[in-house]
Amino acid sequence: MQDIKSSISQMNALELSAQKNTIIHRLQAPVKIITTVIYLLIIISYGQGQVSRLIPCFFYPAVVMALGEIPFKTIAGRLLIALPFSLFAGISNLMFSRETAFILGGIAVTAGMVSFASIMLKTALCVTAVLILIATTDMNGLAYGMLSLRVPPVIVTQIMLTYRYIGVIAEEASVMRHAYLLRAPNEKGIRMKDMGAFLGQLIIRSFDRSERIYNAMKCRGYEGRIAYSDREKISLKGWAYITVTSVFFLLLRFVNVSALVGSLFL
């Protein structure tokens, strides 16, 4: 079993990438959030049979990754974690939708295969876009970006606190695990029969900690609502970036780029 702390440090690799200073990193967080949301909406809007039209959509993440100096390996590694979920969601299409959609090189391609490929491509594109957003914007920037976009502060606070304490709880779990393993030298991990007590202890510790945090908040005047700094306004440059990328996305969506490229060669 992999050590909990090393899993957390792997999670932090994307966060480290957010500390860079490239043209993409320098964009305001709300600009990147809006662009990502528009991109996601465009991707989702493609029909199930439009697999070939989805392929040019890789252009955007590829360009942003290059400009943002985001290592492909970092994104690909996380993408591989997300893809199995879509794989299981899309696999039923292969079984239930068996009518032939078209023949490719003498092989009958079923409608199920097409929609399966579409689901996988859409997942890859959407997850990549979100990972790029995280890899180019630190959590604080994301939080303030969300506030600028009028996301309710209570939701932003939940996200911030979860992010802040996930490492602390993981560290606590790691210490408990080490303490367990030192007294159970023949075990490679927590035995299932002890897992209930282990998780129960972790929850109790989390409750204790949350009470202490709440007390610390109250001691500094907290009365149910966290006050953040003034909301950041999107600059002219930011609006220009949103406009250019949106026009590009709309072109991809409504012009069949794949067919155009194909016609050049046929």
């Binding site: 911030m160 992010y163 802040r164 900690r209 610390a216």
Partner: peptide, 8 residues
């Protein structure tokens, strides 16, 4: 850790 709960 109980007192520093904001992200930065």
């Amino acid at each position: 850790d109980d007192q520093l709960f904001m992200s930065n």
